[in-house]
């Protein structure tokens, strides 16, 4: 396992952002963590890299317990695990040129000799589809898509094994999204990256993930292969999430009510307040994640309607991707 989380939890004040998550990613795998905003998926990403300290639980990275590393050892380890942020306008230091930003991980971890840094930066920029001549410019001179490419070049410069993308395309224009998704897919394949995609865009998730974990109020409610999650979702929340994709309709009853406050989650199964199937036991006992699903009634629920193969988001994305591939050939 490249990364394994065991019963990881973190509170902020009274908010239980992440409430006991056990999850693992194998080497070379793309795992998507999906859920509504506020479900704790971004916090989970930062906990996995120990950018935030967990209250409890263990994080193993390539077999090593991250919690036991000294600050210095942890910093040295960061060359192998990187993060791509959602907002490309916020994640680049405004007073650093592109070259300085991409060179930083190279210098910090002594990846290449000083004399070769410039060359390597040019290589990385070319790799993400930017002209190396742009290296002397400042972040404010670029568009969102270009900035995100710079952030990707920076994240990959040290040659990490694990990369976490925290909604890496959701702040971009739809046309640019497709380009950046293409780029990420190419890089994952060519560099053999282990990738955790934190996203709420199920179209993108279906497109690039091998496995999917569904989060609700700080807990994983269902986990499985992308095909299984999309064609045979078992947890009522997963079904509702898939049904909520625009144009999908009918697959499952729509969700009623709002997400309960994470500082005062309902007892028992967190989802029972909005679950159309909820029974007495759901209000009392919290279901464990067994066989990939955390639901007392998983075995008794009616079979789910599979999400249509050509769901609108995916089709739109696929068309755009095709368009840009053609553009490259022309």
């Amino acid at each position: 396992m490249m990364l394994a989380l065991e019963d990881v939890a973190r509170r902020f004040g009274t908010v239980r952002a992440v409430d006991g998550v056990t999850l693992s990613v194998a080497q070379g795998q793309v795992l998507a963590v999906v859920g509504e905003s506020g479900c704790g998926k971004s916090t989970l990403g930062r906990l996995a890299l120990r950018l935030i300290e967990p209250d409890r639980g263990r994080i193993r990275f390539a077999g090593e317990d991250l919690g036991k590393l000294s600050p210095r050892a942890l910093r040295a380890r960061r060359r192998d695990m990187q993060l791509i942020f959602q907002d490309p306008f916020g994640s680049l230091d405004p007073r650093m040129t592109v070259e300085q930003a991409v060179a930083e991980p190279l210098i910090l971890h002594n990846i290449v000799p000083r004399a070769k840094v410039r060359e390597r930066v040019a290589e990385m920029l070319t790799r993400v589809g930017l002209r190396p001549e742009l290296a002397t410019r400042w972040p404010h001179e670029f568009s969102g898509g270009q900035r995100q490419r710079i952030a990707i070049a920076r994240a990959l410069a040290s040659g990490p094994k694990l990369v976490i993308g925290d909604e890496p395309v959701s702040a971009l224009d739809v046309s640019v999204q497709a380009q950046v998704v293409n780029l990420l897919q190419d890089l994952i394949r060519d560099l053999g990256l282990t990738f955790i995609l934190i996203s709420h865009d199920l179209g993108v998730v279906r497109h690039i993930a091998d496995r999917v974990a569904v989060m609700y109020l700080g807990r994983i409610v269902e986990e499985g292969t992308t095909a299984a999650i999309f064609t045979a979702p078992r947890h009522p929340y997963t079904r509702a999430l898939l049904a909520a994709v625009p144009g999908q309709g009918g697959g499952a009853p729509p969700l009623e009510g709002d997400v309960p406050s994470p500082s005062n989650p309902p007892p028992g199964c967190h989802f029972h307040t909005r679950c159309p199937f909820a029974e007495a036991i759901c209000r009392v006992e919290s279901p464990a994640l067994e066989g990939g699903v955390a639901c007392h009634l998983a075995d008794r629920l009616p079979p789910a309607v599979a999400m249509a193969e050509a769901e609108p988001g995916g089709a739109r994305l696929a068309r755009l991707q095709e368009f840009f591939k053609d553009g490259a050939r022309a």
């Binding site: 890299l49 960061r78 907002d87 994640s91 680049l92 230091d93 920076r154």
Partner: peptide
């Protein structure tokens, strides 16, 4: 985010203060 990014890259605290925050 850019300070968090700098931290995620493995910047030690002194570098964070002098090379990122100070400028």
């Amino acid at each position: 985010d850019w300070v968090e990014a700098a931290r995620a890259l493995g910047n030690p605290p002194w570098r964070l203060g002098l090379l990122h925050v100070l400028p």
